[in-house]
Amino acid sequence: MSGKFVVGYDGSNASHRALKFAVAKAAAQGGSVMIAHVLEWSPYSFLTPNELEERHKRRNEELTRAKEVVMDPIVKEMSGKGADIESTIKYGKVVDVLCDIAKESGADQMVIGRDGDSGIASRVFGSVAGALAQCAPVPCTIVP
């Protein structure tokens, strides 16, 4: 049995645990893992004229940095563990983008970490894991 896992990864410990979990599962069933890193972005934010001018340049810098600092090391670390590894870096709202990636890549499962934070902030604003549990298009595993 094969299957595709989409894992949200932001470099945190929680997302690292989730990824390890997904890779182990995928390896066991001969499946693959898509590591997704989302850069938070809203097309409705306000920028100064200067920021507008430099946006394209900054975006390229941000993408390069995300690839070099976050994605490349983790892809290297997770390769050779028995599961095929793919990666993607996108801009947008984390939850929406993860759901879109899952839909577009035909994933069978999503895996997301949680930091176990039950503080006031996550109660008010919600957390990525909580929101994904609500709106994931495929079964979603939350790794503690």
């Binding site: 097309p43 934010s45 920028l47 100064t48 975006r59 801009y91």
Partner: peptide, 25 residues
């Protein structure tokens, strides 16, 4: 509203942002 914006261009200057900045001027 972004109806015609390619999602792959997310992170670039959107129509909304260009309009908002021009308007605040």
């Amino acid at each position: 509203k972004g109806d015609y914006s390619d999602p792959n261009d997310a992170g670039e200057v959107s129509h909304f942002q260009a309009l908002a900045t021009a308007l605040s001027g």
